[in-house]
Design a binder for these strands. Structure first.
Lengths: 316, 316
DNA sequence: CACCTGCCATAAAGAGAGCTTATGCTTCTG
DNA sequence: CAGAAGCATAAGCTCTCTTTATGGCAGGTG
């Protein structure tokens, strides 16, 4: 069931485009310039179209060409049609290039994404990049979001997901604190000031090394809390159990160090996700490629993680 | 001074055409059939356009393709634009193929053109051939005439003219009359019944052979009168001084013979003429080629004229 | 459950449409 | 009269697009 009746046989459209330019300029040479081809090519295409129509479209006068009656009848509608086509495509391309909306969890956005996004914006000035933070999974169908960064097991329906980095938990503190307390091995932490020591992750971490943490309690750690703890740790107030990947910048800058070189692996990871049907969109690909590269690069800036990841006993 | 603002950069139009068909069918394979190419080619072109736009136009589902949101936004306007282009071209082609109007002098139309035109009509049924007779020179700019047959010296401004045949004058009569009166040489005509004997052409003809026609008078011969005289001559009523080329059919059929084998050459001729700017129009060329061929063929059917033309002393 | 069919993607190879280069012609101009 | 502006034409080449061939995926079907 064709939506429209099968269209009449079309003339060679390349020739039509050339005709349109030639008609507008009333000059083959200038039309050729506009189209980025030679005058001979224009002449060739016009001739082609004239043969197809069966009538001259231009009168060749000594120093100029002029449209014939038939050429004039064509020029109007053809010009309009081509302009229309050009306009639709341009509009769509622009709409598609103007705004890039990323959805992310708050912590991720603040600690990891935002610092890096500035560079992306510089490299791709054609976009206005928006970051929307939200706690829930975005629905691409209803919300105007191009890509999202999610934290989870990595399989959501209807979206393509690519892993940015697996999450680990490791004890982080300021270099000064580690020095002052002479932190060397896990057991040393039992005498160090732990930030939010009653959280599950501490228990798991110590257990992973066969140690038993004196404090009890099992409060699930919120990511926001984690970020706050890390801020405190950086100011030397104690040791925070956190996802070091999220603080790669601070670690690379020396503001933050691993209190002890042992990490446990979380079964969840951060992913960049987007609707499967948009996987070929230029702007999707552009951002996806960029953020994946950033994630790789960020891992490289984690000397401990990078070098000893393989040696670390995973708790998963 | 461009009539319209320079149009936005157009996408590859071949790909646009393929997209339109694919969008209409929601099926690459069938679009390929319609366009007379392979499914792979459609796939290639769509991909090309998608890369250009920077976004997927179709969602590839297992057993079918469906337009994406962007594809849908394109399909409407693009379909309309292409239909418009197709329509303009089709209209013009048809208008250009429907009616063929020939202008001609009355005599020429009746004695020469009409009998032959039937064959042209049979060979080119796509045209409705119209013959308009008029006494004056048609103005192609104002009158809806495609070609004209003119009698004259052969040089008119703004039109291309090609000679159909030079005109001669020769005495014509029925074969019975020639036999009965035993007409052999020019002098024999002095005792024959001449039709319109007071016309200039008789005087000139006799003079060309060094004879003096007893009758005087110098009425210019009208072409209509000439045709009537020939009709009378064919019915055996006398000898007519006429342009034998116009009666080649009757001569070939044996209804009319040269009373005496001597012709004088008129400085005027019959020409087929048409506006120079339309010389490449298919319908112009078609008719021009046909009528020129007819003129050549007609000359061939004039055995006397064809064989002895070179020997005839021209009065011009 | 295995098989077949419909439909699209992809890679490689081939063909030809259309572009460029070069040249000639015509007319207008200084 | 020489030069410039403009278009046509011929020859040759290039690169785009097409075809051929193949594979994958999902949904019918015996």
């Amino acid at each position: 069931m064709p939506a429209q009746p099968p269209p009449p046989k079309l003339p060679p459209l390349a020739a039509v485009r050339v005709f349109e330019a030639a008609a507008r300029h009333q000059n083959f040479t200038r039309a050729a310039e506009e189209l980025g081809m030679t005058q001979a090519a224009v002449s060739y295409q016009i001739r082609l179209l004239e043969d197809r129509v069966g009538a001259a479209l231009f009168v060749r006068q000594p120093r100029q060409v002029a449209l014939t009656a038939i050429g004039q009848r064509l020029a109007g509608p053809v010009g309009k049609a081509l302009t229309d086509i050009g306009t639709v495509f341009r509009d769509i391309c622009e709409a598609n290039q103007t705004v890039l909306t990323i959805s992310s969890l708050q912590t991720m956005a603040i600690t990891w994404l935002s610092p890096r996004l500035a560079q992306f914006q510089i490299e791709n000035p054609q976009f206005a990049v928006r970051v929307r933070t939200s706690q829930h999974l975005v629905d691409f169908a209803t919300e105007a979001v191009d890509l999202a960064v999610r934290y989870g097991p990595g399989s959501w329906p209807g979206v393509a997901a690519e892993k940015l980095f697996a999450c680990h938990y490791a004890p982080l503190c300021s270099p000064e604190l580690r020095e002052r307390l002479q932190l060397r091995e896990a057991a040393d932490l039992l005498r160090a000031p732990l930030l939010s020591p009653d959280e599950t992750s501490w228990k798991v971490w110590f257990a992973d090394l066969g140690l038993d943490q004196p404090q009890q309690g099992a409060r699930a750690m919120s990511l926001e809390m984690q970020a706050m703890n890390v801020q405190a740790a950086m100011r030397g107030h104690g040791v925070a159990m956190a996802v070091p990947e999220l603080f790669a910048y601070d670690i690379a800058a020396g503001r933050l160090v691993f209190a002890v070189e042992h990490a446990i692996r979380d079964q969840w990871a951060y992913w960049v996700v987007y609707p499967v049907e948009r996987q070929r969109d230029r702007k999707i690909r552009l951002f996806r490629d960029w953020i994946l590269a950033e994630a790789r690069a960020a891992e490289m800036t984690l000397p401990f993680m990078a070098s000893s990841l393989g040696l670390i006993h995973s708790s998963a």
